[in-house]
Design a protein around this nucleic acid. Structure first.
Lengths: 343, 343
DNA sequence: TAAAAAAATGTGTACGTACACACTAATTTA
DNA sequence: TAAATTAGTGTGTACGTACACATTTTTTTA
């Protein structure tokens, strides 16, 4: 039965004490040339790999991670993201990490700043957050960088430096939407509407990138289509949409946010058929998808984004494991059939 | 700064020795009613969670896992699956697991049986394999069960009992293909061909389930379409396909295997346009997808299947972590745009 | 060349758990 | 009631690593 190589084995082969081996591994000096040579040779020869278990066992500090995400009660898009986080908390509950979750109001930049500042006050080892608001996020990031607190984001990418990020390529995501829609287009009768529905306009980069990607797809296209853009606040969604649809005769829609169901609902009320492609597996979106009133949804995998970013953070702290600075998740296409495999 | 609860803490609170606490936790008896009560109370009160690191540190046996998969040299579909396995091997290389990978010829059931038998001879703790051949897999599984070796499969699900499985719902996967195709169908002019291209016919369950799913979708459909089925061995693919296309006038194709590019190529040679939906992100498939000669590919995520199943196995052995007996991965839809996010 | 300083090396203990063994207390048996 | 048995409890050591400290060896200085 094979046994793993330990520093003891190295010590024996190199004919030195484990203390010397340890000093070489962590190169804290005080080792003679000769010994260094011998130990390094043995290290290479036996292909030594430190036992991360024993290593982290020694390290008896408890790392603290503070998480700041939008309140799922205010916008159910964040529900799976919360679940993903809870899942990881459970997974590492027996380890030396102390993870706390805090929520801000996605329609109140002020609440983000306030709670963010409070978190930093406690000097955690790392802060993971959703940079929903551009300006406020940059302020928070500056503070984090200054205080040498590990920073991590997911969902959207802030302009300032972040130590770690998990997300999707939003530009490409827009192109995917465009491609999906292109299969349904009729040269003469199709008019396309790009619709942004969101509470906080600060969130704009997000939606803008998708729109740019979307339009870029049609630039290399033989047939030219009329593309109209509409940005809608959460007040008076229906009347605004109604007006938008009627005035331009739009019958094909790309909705850049999870509020895609609003467009489907409006079309339903108008008793019109249209092509709707949008985002996210919200209950209401799934309903319309199943009924054929939404053709495709693009899955932003909030749960995966949240759990992956938290997991990376935890393993970085706990096991010194290295992760790529930016991790981009695949852009997943959902229709009425494969949606079942996502539930 | 918070500290994690250890058996020492429990011992102190319950006013007994750590030995007694240990006996309670592993209930190996020899504990008085009174002590049992006290320890259990303390355990609950302090919400004790064993430190899995320390636990597995003690356990100095090296677990062995043997893996049996098709040779990626013979069918490049298995390349990412091999990569996924290597990735996990690297990830756990410092732990007490010894993982060895063995390859069989996907066109030779005999090689599967032979290598399988050899593996079992070494009495590993677990065997992970791809049950490509029905009969041979069942034989292997029977031996594994008898010898109490942990068994695990991925890609397809054998009939016999398996301790662990990772895969996709193939029936649903067929329905997804049908739905994707349905968006392109024209009531009068569309004739659908379901094409099975594979070396080993033993693999039939696999393809059959997809076909059933595919057909089930159209059963609840208003318009009736002609659906023709063709099973093709790897010899004379082109002439067989040519004949199939011409004789039935098929112009819409659902290919149930990764050899989807063969259909696209044949259409290309015939200078015909057609709708092709098939499986897997092979280089050749991606080429035709990007050129618009394949509309959609269904991603079976072989890499993910392999890595997830191996990871589950490792963590089960190493950390006694529990995983669901069957894990089904989502069915991922790929078009010419989101394919970039998968590379 | 002896003493002092510096460099190099070795030893011991801790992390939290598991388990063998030693020990004490409570029963049983003669 | 003493001896023998059994039930219950506590102690010590090991796992592999990290680090403080003790010890030895080498170099420098007077």
């Amino acid at each position: 039965m094979k046994r793993k190589i330990t520093i003891k084995d190295i010590a024996k082969v190199a004919n030195v004490s484990i203390g010397t081996v340890d000093r070489v591994i962590h190169n804290r000096g005080k080792v003679s040339e000769k010994a260094l040579q011998k130990v390094n040779d043995a290290l290479k020869e036996l292909d030594y790999k430190a036992n991360p278990l024993a290593r982290s066992l020694k390290n008896n500090v408890v790392y603290t991670i503070s998480i700041l995400i939008p309140d799922p009660q205010k916008d159910s898009y964040w529900l799976p993201c919360q679940q993903g986080i809870m899942e990881i908390i459970t997974e590492y509950e027996a380890f030396d990490v102390d993870i706390s979750v805090h929520y801000f109001d996605p329609s109140e930049p002020e609440s983000f700043s306030q709670i963010g500042a409070r978190l930093i006050g406690k000097s955690p080892d790392a802060v993971l957050f959703v940079p929903l608001f551009e300006r406020e996020s940059d302020v928070l990031l500056q503070k984090l960088n200054k205080k040498d607190i590990l920073s991590a984001t997911f969902n959207s990418l802030p302009r300032n430096h972040v130590d770690q990020h998990v997300g999707q390529d939003l530009y490409l995501s827009g192109r995917v939407g465009a491609k999906l829609i292109s299969d349904f287009l009729h040269p003469s009768t199709s008019k396309i509407g790009v619709v942004h529905i969101d509470e906080a306009f600060n969130n704009a980069i997000h939606m803008q990138q998708k729109e740019e990607g979307f339009k870029s797809f049609y630039e290399t296209y033989a047939t030219k289509y009329d593309i109209f853009t509409k940005t809608i606040n959460t007040d008076n969604i229906h009347s605004t949409l109604l007006d938008f649809i009627e005035s331009h005769g739009v019958n094909v829609f790309f909705v850049t946010t999870s509020k895609t169901y609003e467009v489907a609902r409006t079309l339903e009320l108008l008793n019109k058929n249209g092509i709707v492609v949008g985002y996210d597996l919200l209950q209401e979106n799934i309903k319309y998808l199943t009924e054929g009133k939404i053709q495709f949804l693009i899955h932003q995998a909030p749960r995966m984004q949240a759990s992956l970013s938290l997991k990376s953070l935890v393993e970085k702290l706990l096991f010194k494991k290295e992760y790529p600075k930016k991790q981009f998740l695949p852009i997943e296409i959902i229709n009425s059939e494969n949606v079942k495999s996502y539930l």
